[in-house]
Structure formats: structure tokens, C-alpha cells
């Protein structure tokens, strides 16, 4: 019986190397989770009773601001990620159903828009419109094209994968190929593309709030606090929100990078 007696001398199996970006992504996730927990627990630090942000000590005030910033960023990132992924899937479906030309045009629009300074729309929307959900939608729109471009690149790369041809050679109908092979391999890259929206919306919202055109004052925001402290010339009030904002931005970027690097082949 033919058997593989020993591994051949060539192609030694290299030792399992930790994937690049994985540790960074993990620490980013830990930091973001810690920040979210601290912000959620912030009211407990303000001696019970009513919370007056201006009276509280600067760190507690910054943590209270984080509630607004982080929850808004989460909402807008989910919206933006979904919009971007939907955009990419729409392009992919147009490619299969209508033709490659429609697909190219759909995704070329996203590519062009990803180069525009869309973040400027957020203060515009904040100044012109009132409701938070509308602001969240506009913020999500600013992140969606970049997500769509990345998600579409992953999707079209996977559509050409050889293992899909192998599945067709095994007589699987197209529906089964998509269900058994395409979708399980697509979820992680799409998720990674979607997470790209998180740092973008956080930065866009903070920028708008810094100008005083972002979230309403009742919600609180790191950007708004930084802007206010800068205008008042108060370094003690300036430092905590600025540091927390920087930390949150780094963590969000690290998560997005780690996710994108994690599924890529070495």
C-alpha cells in the first residue's frame, strides 16, 4: 500500500507563527471594552444623586462624556458597516445578475466617494438637523464607501477562488455552493471590513463635536468637552477627554487592523 512514510525533507512545516496584528487587535478590544465599562459605571463615581457634569471632577466628567461618544459611535458604526457591506453585496449581485459593467459602476462610485472628505458632512448635518438618528445616519454614510470598497475586494477575490470551481465539479448546484462554501468563508472578511467603520465614525463625530456641531450637549461627547476646555483655556478639563478620545481611537483602529489582518493568508 502506498503510504506517506515520513514527511519529505523539503517543505518542513514551519512553526506556527502568531498572526501579525492579532495581539494588537486583542489589546485594542480589551482597551475598548474597559473604556466602555468605565463609562457605563461613571455615574457611580459622581456620589450618587444627580449628575452635574461641570461640577464633577474632570476624569468623571470625561467618562460621562464617553457614554455619549461611544454609544453614538457604536450605533453609527453598525449602520455604516451594514450600509457598506450591503453596497458591496449589491455590487456583487448586480455582477452576477446584470453584468460586470453594472458591478464595476456600482463599486467605482464607492471608490470615488471613499476619496472625498465626507467627514465634513457630519458637522453640516449636526448644524442643520436636530435628531440624533439623522446625525447617526449621515455619520454612517461617511464611513460606508470605504467599507464597501474593502468588502467588495474580498468578495470578488473569493468569487474567483478555486475551491468554488472544485465544488461545482462535485456537482453542487449554485445555491449549495453559496450556502456551503461562499457564505462561511465570507463572514469573517465582511465583518473585518465592517469594523473599519468604527474608527471612522468615532473620528468624524469627535471632529463635528469639537466644532460644537455634533451631538447635542445633553448627551455629552469627548470632542465637545475638548473643544469647550480649549475655548475656556482650562488644561485640567482638557486633558482627560483628549486622552480618552485618543485611546478609544487607537483601540478602534487596532481592532479594525487586527480583524483585517487575521483572515488574510500569510
Amino acid at each position: 500500500m502506498a503510504e506517506y512514510d515520513q514527511p519529505p525533507l523539503s517543505h518542513p512545516v514551519p512553526p506556527e507563527t502568531p498572526r501579525a496584528g492579532f495581539a494588537r487587535g486583542l489589546s485594542g478590544a480589551a482597551i475598548l471594552a474597559a473604556l466602555a465599562l468605565a463609562c457605563a459605571a461613571a455615574p457611580l463615581m459622581a456620589d450618587g444623586s444627580a449628575v452635574h457634569r461641570l461640577d464633577a471632577d474632570p476624569v468623571a466628567a470625561a467618562l460621562l462624556d464617553g457614554r455619549g461618544s461611544l454609544s453614538f459611535a457604536l450605533l453609527a458604526a453598525v449602520l455604516g458597516g451594514l450600509l457598506g457591506i450591503g453596497w458591496a453585496l449589491l455590487a456583487g449581485m448586480l455582477g452576477t445578475l446584470v453584468g460586470s459593467r453594472a458591478e464595476r459602476r456600482t463599486i467605482a462610485a464607492a471608490q470615488r466617494m471613499a476619496g472625498w472628505p465626507l467627514a465634513l458632512l457630519v458637522p453640516l448635518a449636526g448644524g442643520l438637523t436636530g435628531p440624533v438618528w439623522l446625525l447617526a445616519l449621515v455619520t454612517a454614510l461617511t464611513a460606508a464607501p470605504a467599507v464597501a470598497v474593502l468588502a467588495h475586494a474580498e468578495l470578488s477575490g473569493l468569487m474567483r477562488a478555486e475551491f468554488l470551481t472544485a465544488a461545482r465539479a462535485a456537482g453542487l448546484p449554485e445555491g449549495e455552493v453559496v450556502r456551503r462554501h461562499l457564505i462561511p468563508n465570507l463572514t469573517r472578511p465582511l465583518l473585518a471590513a465592517g469594523v473599519l467603520a468604527l474608527p471612522r465614525v468615532l473620528a468624524a463625530e469627535s471632529f463635528a463635536s469639537l466644532l460644537g456641531l455634533g451631538l447635542p450637549p445633553a448627551l455629552g461627547s469627548w470632542g465637545a468637552s475638548v473643544g469647550l476646555a480649549a475655548r475656556l483655556g482650562d488644561p485640567v478639563a482638557f486633558v482627560p477627554p483628549a486622552l480618552l478620545l485618543a485611546l478609544a481611537l487607537w483601540a478602534a483602529c487596532a481592532i479594525a487592523d487586527g480583524m483585517a489582518a487575521g483572515h488574510r493568508k500569510p
Binding site: 477562488a161 478555486e162 475551491f163 470551481t165 472544485a166 465544488a167 462554501h181 462561511p184 468563508n185
Partner: peptide, 11 residues
């Protein structure tokens, strides 16, 4: 297939 490793579903 010419690239057998790529012809298997990694998942």
C-alpha cells in the same frame, strides 16, 4: 487542479 491547496475550502 494546478494549485491543489487552493482547491480546498479553508473553512
Amino acid at each position: 487542479f494546478p494549485d491543489p491547496a487552493a482547491s480546498f475550502d479553508p473553512a
